[in-house]
Design a binder for these strands. Structure first.
Lengths: 203, 203
DNA sequence: ATTATCTATAGATCTATAGATAATGC
DNA sequence: ATTATCTATAGATCTATAGATAATGC
């Protein structure tokens, strides 16, 4: 059967959304085109009408997810411009985010996978770092512009590393201790411990 | 042809070393048993005389690499007990480490991959975090035991995250900026910038 | 008539196994 | 005789393609 032009565009977006979720959950090599299409309610063969290759899908799915998560940081800054940095840190280092990699931070879920990919995909992530860096540099405290940028980079590193470790670790109490320690050290005096009640799954 | 009992044990260790390097470079799903055996100078079929499955190989290869990298941290502490934390941080955040994932930190190279694995493999990494945490907690500054432990966890997070981001990013100058920023913020006043002359590739 | 999707399959790759081979160690 | 390794292959899975199908849009 065939489908309207509008329906076709919707299908395409759904493929991208399903793909970005499954990639984050299982890694680029851990999920196949057939299962992604099944997840979108379509058949395997239809895929190549939408995308030239799996690599193209990876790049586009990551670009879409990246722009969404950058927007979510920007939105936090808009809503809570006084304590935006603490809000971003607490939201990021939540157990909800840890337990939902499929809707969370692309760097924490796919960072090492990306390092093994080709230029187009790495460029998406490079621009994602730049965009988040700019947002975070505007939200952290610091005397000079350079100091705020440096602090923003170190904060991002701390967030990503804490999430990677918290997810890799088997022991729940050690996992929560990692999140809490990172929140305490990064957040400084304003954020005390891991928040479990945040809006959840952003990256 | 057959081989002496001693030679067989050597072959086994070589398989583990080749495997841990290739896993770090290409991910658990990015390299097959056949290529690992080829890298060890053996044939595909011989593998199952040494290991029951690829999963068993993953767990044992990671355990071996983990114990080696924990020893290397312990050695730094022994040699430079006055500024051990700074030495660990600078060595970790070097461009040499960034450019040699195959011999570097398992968490930075395989963290998200591990989160998708079964219990035996995750346990290896959990114990690895504990061992490194203990070493680092003895090397960082802090008033109480709890404060040092918290700082050690946050430091590890910062190291791992900075390496993940520095490797994912395409732009060399942004990549070095990430390493330098993390070193400056983590190291505090003692370590200024990324050291390029360290002993290299430890994790 | 065009085209989005589906069915079927080619070709490559990957884990794991079975049986053969040949050198070690009792 | 035992056993470490090799050859060959089964069975599953994965990317990508070719041709068929059927509903949309000129």
């Amino acid at each position: 059967m065939r489908v309207s032009r509008e329906q076709c565009a919707e299908n395409r977006q759904r493929i991208l959304d399903v793909a970005s979720k499954l990639f984050r959950e299982k890694g680029f090599d851990g999920i196949g085109v057939a299962d992604i299409m099944k997840g979108a309610g379509l058949t395997h063969g239809g895929f190549y009408g939408h995308f030239a290759s799996k690599d193209v899908l990876i790049a586009q799915a990551c670009a879409r997810a990246m722009s969404g998560s950058v927007s979510s940081w920007a939105q936090i800054v808009e809503q809570r411009h006084d304590d935006a940095a603490a809000a971003i840190v607490d939201g990021y280092l939540s157990t909800k985010h840890r337990d939902r990699p499929g809707t969370g931070c692309l760097f924490a879920a796919l960072g090492p996978d990306v390092a093994r990919q080709g230029k187009p995909i790495r460029r998406v992530f490079t621009e994602g770092v730049r965009a988040r860096l700019e947002i975070l540099a505007g939200a952290v405290a610091g005397r000079s512009r350079a100091a705020r940028r440096r602090k923003a980079l170190a904060t991002m590193s701390g967030l990503v590393g804490a999430m990677v470790l918290a997810r890799a670790v088997d022991d729940p109490s050690l996992s929560e201790e990692i999140l809490a320690a990172a929140a305490a050290e990064i957040g400084g005096q304003c954020s005390g411990h891991t928040s479990l009640d945040k809006s959840g799954g952003q990256g």
